[in-house]
Design a protein around this nucleic acid. Sequence first.
DNA 1: AAGTAGCT
DNA 2: ATTG
Length: 214
Amino acid sequence: MTGSPPRFPQGFAHHPLYFAPGEQAALTDAVVEGLMQAPLYQPTMPRTGAPLSVLMSNFGPLGWVTDRDGGYRYQPDHPVTGAAWPALPDTLLQLWHDVTDWPDPPEACLINWYREGSKMGAHVDRDEHDLRAPVVSVSLGDDAMFRMGGRARGGPTTGLRLHSGDVVVMAGEARQCHHGVSRIYAGTSALLPESAFPGGGRVNLTMRVVGAPG
DNA sequence: AAGTAGCT
DNA sequence: ATTG
């Protein structure tokens, strides 16, 4: 017996190897440069202060941050250094233009560094003003198991293994669906430089339109 | 609940 | 499903 093929929500798109290896290296260089200005920090959960297993930073006029006291939010400055986030690299703005038809540019690009054992629990991106604006993400480095669910929390999910250079777009129905990362396949890529990312791992870049304050 | 546990 |  063969099972049903994976079913993804309307509006979900996967572009395998959108970026060739040389382009991935150039984008990685841009990320490393940005991290010199806005270093990775350890985010924590609202109220409990439980640490997330990924380290984060941002590009763009706004960055998504979380900590115990302030909760989930977008803000223009780094929560540790207080400095403005670095500008969005042109390559990412071009990507947004090429894979979406949204009229406005992204205001935020969250940088998530996953190490071996890092996970991202199922969630919906809902801190943006207009949830019709698409979300675009880029994978760099080690493979990851991405899980896509539905609008209801705790429902069935479909797994998709993402590779370095892949681009995922969540628009339409998919924009409001739960998604997360259940595992990292350590050592499957040598893209990330040891100097900036000790132990390697995976970097995910996620662009969003934030909209009116909130 | 962007946490973990635990099941399919 | 669960607490704070």
